[in-house]
Design a protein around this nucleic acid. Sequence first.
DNA 1: TCTGGGGTCCTAGGACCC
DNA 2: TCTGGGGTCCTAGGACCC
Length: 426
Amino acid sequence: MSSINYNKKKIALVDCNSFYVSCERLFNPKIQNKPVVVLSNNDGCVISRSNEAKILGIKMGEPYFKVKELIKRNKVYIFSSNYALYGDLSRRVMRVLKTFSPNVEIYSIDEAFIDLSFLDGKSIENYGKEIRKKVLKWTGIPTSVGISSTKTLSKVANHIAKKEKTGVMYLNENIDEKLKEFPIRDVWGVGKQLSKLYIKNGIDNAYKLKSTSNTWVKKSTNVLGSRTAMELRGINCIGLQTHEEKRKNCCVSRSFGKKVTDLQKLEEAVTTYCLNAAEKIRGDNQICKALTVFIRTSPFNKNRKYYSNGLTIDLPIATSNSIELVKSARKALKSIYKPGYYYQKAGIILSKLKDSDGKDINLLTPLLENKSKELMKAIDYTNMKYGRHAISIANAGISKGWKMRREHSSKIDTASFNYLPKVSAS
DNA sequence: TCTGGGGTCCTAGGACCC
DNA sequence: TCTGGGGTCCTAGGACCC
C-alpha cells in the first residue's frame, strides 16, 4: 500500500563544489582543470580539494606534511586559506539564491537549503538547473543541487547530484534503491561514533537505518539519531531556519607557527584573540557575561608531556569592552599557565552572549561605560578603515613571533578593485 | 620539523532546594 | 541501628556539522 503525501515539501540543498578551490580559481584561470588544494590556517591540513586532487588520493582534513610529496610530484597548486575572500563570495552566492525563493536557510559558508514547495513536481528539476546556471553566471561558482522532501534526504540527493552530469538530482522516486547504495557514514547527522554503533548492529546503509525501529534508534542513540531516521522516511523533523540567529558563543583561537613556551608570548596571543572576539560581538551588538581562556600543547607529539587547560571567568557585568575583557583574559591565562611546556594553541571564548540594547549599562558606572563605548566604536572604525589592528592594545605585542604560517596565500582582496573578477555575461 | 577553526545541541551528573 | 525523594538548574564533555 502506498501512502499519500499531502503537502509534501520540496527542499533543495545547494552546495558549492569545492568551494574554497572554486574561489581561488575565479581569480586564477590557469588553475582550471588542474589539481588544486586549499590549506587550513597555519597551512596545517587540506580543507578543500578540486576533483583532480581528490582523484590523486588527497583526503579531506589530511595533514599537509603527510601529502607534501604527493602534492609536489603531481604539481598540485596550493593555497593558504583566505577567509575574507571566501566570505565575500559566499555572500554573493547567497544573494543570488535568495532570488529563487523567499525561504532560504544559509546553512554554512557554502551551502543553503531552499524551500521549493511552491513548485510542482514536473518543473522542479528544471528549476534546479536554473539555480545552478544563474549562480555560475553571476558569481562564477559551480554548485550542485539536491532536492527531496526533507533536509536529510536533500543532503543525500546532493551527494548523488555531485556525480550527475547535470549537477541536479530530484530524489522523489525509487528512494529506497538509492538509500540502499548510500553508506551509513555519509548520512547527515551520522558521524564517526554513530557510524561505528550502527555498523556493529548491521546497519551499514541509509536504507537499513530507515527500516530500523524508531524505538531501537532512540534507545541506542538519542533524539538526534531518531530524527535522522525519521527524516530518511520522509518525515520532516528538522525545520528550515530562514532567519539568521545571533551566535551564542564567540570563539577565537589559533595554532602557533612555532611552539610557544613563555607567558609573555601567550599573553600577546590571547590579547590579540580577545580583541578580535570583542570586535566580533560588538559588530553583532552583543555583550558577554562569561569568558574562557584555554591553552594546550600538541596532542600529537608523543615525546613531550601533554597539557591542556582552560578557565572560565564569570564577569560581574556583561560587557563588550575590549579593555575589560582583556583584563579578565590575562587573569585567566595567568592562572592556567604552567612553565616548561611547549604550547601549540591558545584561544578565547566569549559566552553567555546577549543583545546589548542599552539597558545593560551598569548603574554604578554609567559615565565610564558610555565613554568606553565611544572608545570601542572609534577603535572598530579605525581598524575597519586602516586595516585590522591599526589600533591595538599594547599587550597585543609587536613582534608576533607566534603568528601562524600562511606561505601560499593568493593575497586576493575582494575589497580592492585590482582583484575584481571578470565574469562573462554571455 | 610539520596535524584548522568556529559553531550547535544533547546528556549525565552534581549542586541545591524543599 | 535507621540516613528520602523529587524537582530544577547549571556545567562539562562529547558528538555532530562545515
